[in-house]
Write a protein that binds this DNA or RNA. Structure first.
Length: 268
DNA sequence: CTATTTGTTTATCC
DNA sequence: AGGATAAACAAATA
């Protein structure tokens, strides 16, 4: 489920441990979420260290312990982070558990295991945090950059382009649909066929959807207002809140896409 | 039983 | 070469 704002929500669930020390680490090294990770080094490296930083960049979260212990978490499709009381029972898909000095436990749970854990012990940023693109809500994310990228991916449907994490970090399936719905652009339109004026609208809607999602979802996972596409998109028979007509669901760019044909009339 | 899934990586085809 | 697309990953849910 996790896109930009859901990731931020989960980041905060572990951020309650900032200032606390890790007493012990439990994990099952065989699980796919640890693919490529030196789990033995992770277990010994984090033990005794204090969490000093809890951050997210797009869908990639990372926590720093002490001066040189870095733990990365990506939630994939079904990953979750939470903090439980000492007496809480473990659950089936708990893959990583950090027991704090207070007794509370930070848990990473992921049933489908498309998520992953990363680990590094180094002075500066680990290589997997270097060269990240500007975050979509930062000043460094500019229209000119988006404009150039749409030309670079001119043949791909705009829906697929918005999902590319190298330029739109954090944008996921429902956010891409929400953006195109607000901008009134049909999702299968090739990016290169979108004119400059409409690109300006897409840019503004992109920022607005990210900002709104952060405000509504990140603090407590509130249900978005009914005038978002969000509440209508999941089930068959959904109705467009703007037109009152049926939403359509089809596969575009390899992903299930929900859109409102009468409303999203821009075809480039 | 089958079909579906809010993500990413790898393979394959142009 | 490089962009576009499909497949694979895995388990829960309908």
């Amino acid at each position: 489920m996790p896109e930009l704002a859901e990731v931020e929500h989960y980041r905060r669930r572990w951020a309650v441990a900032v200032g606390e020390r890790v007493e012990r680490v439990f994990l099952n090294a065989e699980k796919r979420v640890f693919r490529g990770v030196d789990t033995a080094a992770l277990v010994t490296g984090l033990a005794g260290e204090r969490m000093v930083e809890a951050r997210a960049h797009g869908k990639q979260m990372y926590y720093r312990f002490g001066e040189r212990q870095w733990l990365g978490v990506h939630l994939g499709m079904t990953g979750k982070l939470f903090c439980v009381e000492p007496e809480a029972a473990g659950e089936k898909h708990d893959h990583l558990r950090l027991v704090l000095d207070s007794g509370r436990v930070l848990v990473f749970q992921d049933s489908r295991m498309f998520g992953r854990v990363l680990y590094a012990a180094c002075e500066g940023l680990p290589e997997w945090l270097q060269g990240l693109p500007p975050e979509v809500l930062s000043d460094a994310f500019t229209f000119e950059q988006m404009d150039a990228f749409l030309d670079c991916r001119a043949g791909a449907p705009i829906k697929a382009v918005l999902l590319m994490q190298g330029v739109f970090p954090g944008v996921g399936n429902w956010m891409a649909d929400e953006i195109l719905w607000r901008a009134r652009v049909a999702p299968m339109v090739p990016a290169g066929r979108i004119g400059r004026r409409k690109r300006r609208e897409i840019f503004a809607c992109l920022q607005a959807v990210c900002r709104d999602a952060m405000r509504v979802i990140a603090p407590d996972w509130s249900r978005p207002p009914e005038d978002w596409l969000f509440n209508h998109r999941w089930r068959d028979g959904g109705i467009c809140p703007r037109t009152g007509r049926a939403l359509r669901r089809e596969s575009i760019g390899g992903r299930t896409t929900c859109w409102s044909p009468a409303w999203q009339c821009y075809r480039g």
